[in-house]
């Protein structure tokens, strides 16, 4: 479902003496439907960078990144937007939403975007928020006023609302308490069971061991010293 082939990436900082920071060279990985692959490597090794490249958020210098039938590296902006709407989900640690929009609507948005009926989307959003222990009295408020942990759980509810065939999870369990962590891990398990291909970054080893079928050490993609 997700196939990374000979991918290279570097950052050029034009305003800081044009420093070129090499990140990775000839990265290769494949994720099959129903499989969860954990990215490992020390901080700064390029785990999030690789994930953002797959999402089309960062450009890729060379290589090919296939998600379904689409090569993200050469795709047009609107093809990537379609891919993100229908096929590829991304859950980051941080919630980014329009001010003043109620939590329930924030969670419903991805489902409405793929054409789900309003009442079905609402029912699913309620179920997810309940499972993630967001008190019902908060649902009509904007999540921007919530605590960090609550925002993160709203973000997870939103990320799992539509059943994407492929998902990218950037530390979804960081800073959650034990009960909520278990809920998130069970959501990941269910996504795998319905055939989603998942790439995840988990700093928590126990969590990683519980849901990941394989691990890939991103630091092996680092450019070899010349």
């Amino acid at each position: 479902m997700i196939q990374v082939e000979n991918v290279s990436k570097d950052f050029t900082l034009h305003n800081q003496n044009s420093v070129v920071i090499p990140v990775m060279e000839n990265a290769n990985m494949t994720v099959m439907p129903g499989e969860c692959v954990g990215l490992t490597g020390s901080s700064g090794a390029g785990k999030s960078t690789l994930m953002r490249m797959i999402y089309g958020n960062y450009l890729t210098r060379s290589g090919r990144i296939m998600v379904g039938d689409l090569d993200v590296v050469t795709a047009l902006p609107r093809e990537i937007l379609d891919l993100r709407r229908d096929t590829l989900g991304y859950v980051s640690q941080f919630l980014r939403v329009v001010p003043r929009v109620p939590t329930l609507d924030v969670v419903c948005e991805p489902m409405l975007a793929v054409g789900m009926a309003q009442d079905v989307a609402h029912a699913r959003a309620r179920e997810l928020l309940t499972r993630l222990r967001i008190p019902e009295r908060l649902w009509s408020l904007s999540p921007l006023t919530f605590s960090g942990g609550e925002q993160q759980r709203v973000n997870i509810a939103r990320g799992f609302a539509h059943e994407y065939p492929a998902m990218l999870l950037d530390e979804p369990t960081a800073s959650l308490d034990v009960a909520n962590r278990e809920t998130v891990l069970s959501l990941i398990g269910q996504a795998k069971a319905r055939g989603a291909a998942i790439i995840g970054i988990f700093h928590d080893e126990a969590a990683r061991a519980q849901v990941c079928d394989r691990e890939i050490d991103v630091s092996t993609f680092a450019r070899k010293a010349v």
Binding site: T12, R52, N57, P77
Partner: peptide, 17 residues
């Protein structure tokens, strides 16, 4: 390019600035 891509991974010196 895509809005978030241009803002998060700008390529041109001026955009980075």
């Amino acid at each position: 390019g895509l809005t978030d891509q241009v803002l998060d991974d700008p390529q041109h010196a001026y955009t980075q600035l």
